[in-house]
Amino acid sequence: MNIPALPRSLRRGFSLVEVTLASGITALALTTLLGLIPQGLTNIKEAGNLAAETRITTHIVGSISQAPWQDENGQDILAPEFNTQRYFFDDQGVAIEGEEPGADLAYVAVVHIPARDVTLPADAAAPADDSDVDPYLRRITVKVTSVANKDFDFEHALPMAYRTHTTLIARVGQ
């Protein structure tokens, strides 16, 4: 039995060249998308770290700003109480209570409160002295690392191993 050949206009399907081009375009697109996945995961991790560090810094600065600054004799008690104090946090930036952090330790933070050193702009012709230091402002530096080691050495670590957050707090009462 003889099957008659159909005219070209009635034949359906793609030629080998068309299939090869479509496969090449698809492979290029998939390769590009797969190449973006590691960068996207890195960005997600970095965003999570920044969000946790923001919560950590806010928690620490909030607790320090609510503490009394001076005793009844006018002596500074803010720096002796909080300077070089360590705080421990889990992977979400929630404080771990207690003396010894457990297995959920993800972030370590240390606080530095220097002597009163905040001055506001004044008359340029006026001489600068210690009386220019604002008694109602204090500088607080919080260093945060995502290393789960409660004894992390901030002093000898590379600066890229931790982030430093510096802020000013204001005393409004007392």
Rank of each mutant, 00 (worst) to 15 (best):
Y87D: 00
T42H: 04
P68L: 08
A79V: 04
Y162S: 00
F88Q: 02
R163L: 09
Y136Q: 13
T167V: 10
G40W: 06
S15Q: 08
I113D: 01
I140E: 02
A27H: 03
D104W: 08
T58M: 02
A128T: 12
E155G: 03
Q174T: 05
E81W: 04
M1V: 10
S15G: 14
A52D: 03
Q92M: 12
G62A: 12
N49E: 06
F88M: 01
L120P: 07
T84V: 04
P68Q: 13
E53C: 04
D134F: 03
S63V: 08
L120Y: 09
T42N: 12
A109M: 00
I37S: 15
R11D: 05
K45R: 07
R138K: 15
I169R: 01
A170W: 09
S15N: 13
R86Q: 08
P159A: 08
L50I: 08
S65F: 02
N149Y: 05
L6E: 12
Q66W: 06
Y87A: 00
K150Y: 02
Q70E: 15
E155P: 05
A157D: 13
P114K: 12
T145A: 03
H112W: 04
V61W: 00
S63H: 03
I37N: 14
Q85P: 02
R171W: 08
D153Q: 04
N73T: 15
A126Q: 15
L137P: 00
D90K: 09
L30Y: 05
D153N: 15
N43A: 12
R12C: 13
F89W: 04
K150C: 00
A157Y: 13
M1W: 10
H165N: 07
I140F: 02
Q174A: 11
V19C: 07
K45H: 05
P38Y: 05
E99H: 06
L33M: 15
